[in-house]
Computed example of a mutant assay.
Amino acid sequence: MTLHPQSRALLEAMGEGADAVEMTLEVVRALRSDAREAALSGPRIGLDHVVDVDADGVPCRLYRPRQGAPVALYVHGGGWVLHDLETHDAFCRHLAHQTGWALLAVDYRRAPEHPYPAPLDDVQTAGAWLREHDRGHRVDASFMPAIGDSSGANLVAGLCVRDAGAVDAQVLLYPPVDRRAELPIGLGNAALEAPTMDWFWDAYAPGDLADLPDVSPARATDLSGQPPAYVVTAEHDVLRDQGEEHAARLAEAGVDVLAHRALGMVHSFWRQPALFDASRSTVTVVGALLDAHRSRRR
């Protein structure tokens, strides 16, 4: 298990123990503000059309690379606690530009102020809105996948458990899918440590809520009938094993599933194409795979 030099550079820049801050609400709000400010100062790609919309009460941002583009739901990560439309704006623009897919990015309510079911309810509402209002925004949701990274992937997987017909495919980037799974301490690093992941889980779904199947999708008793899935894990990530086990259970249930482990990678590599070759390659794969699924459904 060798770190890719690009992963090593990121971890060195983050510093040892950078993920070990006590996560009080005051700290959470400061982290949100800092991340937003940093994101707003960075470069971003211009697209045909980018607009903020109200999806039946849920703030969202629509990225359209061209009129008539197929559209996917995008659900950002951040432990259900951090990040927002701005922190993922540059990446969503990159993803839409490189794949040709429009995206509806969901600004769901965040824990700990708004724990389960609020974030998942918002994602569900936004997806239903997109199905109904795609034509009005010159995009095509006749085949509508959902893409999520980290906790966003959990919300996508949870939505599929709650309603298998809510989306037509699920793309899960290093998903946390089982609150009760043991987190391999040896895989923790500055990108994500096990204690911080535990704190995120407790902020989102404290106590027995964590055992609900739309919170811990890996614990759903029946995964048959789930939409096709693409599951990507990172080799040096405490969430690696549970993501791969979830993919295996989907396959066992007869779901069309493809799973990849990104060797040498750490948590969060997907949304950093400027730093990681593997991010750019994975974006290409996601676009091609969604195109193939859409073609088979037409």
Results as ranks from 00 to 15, higher is better:
169 A>M: 08
31 L>Y: 13
221 T>E: 15
156 V>T: 00
199 W>C: 08
259 A>Y: 08
176 P>Q: 09
72 A>R: 10
150 S>E: 13
70 P>G: 11
27 V>P: 11
187 L>G: 12
150 S>M: 12
62 L>C: 03
104 L>N: 01
120 L>C: 06
278 A>P: 03
71 V>D: 04
235 E>M: 03
49 H>T: 04
203 A>L: 15
283 V>H: 03
215 V>K: 02
56 D>F: 03
67 Q>G: 13
190 A>P: 10
33 S>R: 15
85 L>M: 01
67 Q>S: 15
174 Y>P: 06
207 G>M: 09
80 W>Y: 05
21 V>R: 04
275 L>A: 12
272 Q>Y: 09
225 G>I: 00
252 E>D: 14
161 V>T: 00
140 D>W: 06
17 G>E: 00
96 A>M: 09
252 E>G: 12
55 A>I: 01
203 A>E: 11
69 A>G: 04
89 D>Q: 07
225 G>Y: 04
36 R>H: 11
66 R>Y: 08
180 R>K: 08
55 A>E: 03
161 V>K: 01
173 L>I: 15
229 A>S: 13
166 A>M: 10
116 Y>L: 06
296 R>D: 07
287 G>I: 01
298 R>M: 06
109 R>P: 08
292 A>R: 09
118 A>P: 05
27 V>Y: 13
173 L>M: 12
189 N>G: 11
230 Y>S: 11
39 A>H: 09
176 P>R: 06
76 H>L: 09
46 G>Q: 05
44 R>E: 14
118 A>H: 07
45 I>R: 08
43 P>G: 14
33 S>H: 14
26 E>W: 10
22 E>R: 04
179 R>V: 14
101 W>N: 02
121 D>L: 01
297 R>N: 04
252 E>K: 07
86 E>P: 03
9 A>V: 00
85 L>S: 02
238 V>I: 15
246 H>D: 12
214 D>V: 01
89 D>H: 06
173 L>D: 09
42 G>K: 13
213 P>C: 09
97 H>E: 10
296 R>Q: 05
295 S>Q: 12
40 L>M: 15
130 L>E: 01
103 L>D: 03
236 H>L: 12
41 S>P: 07
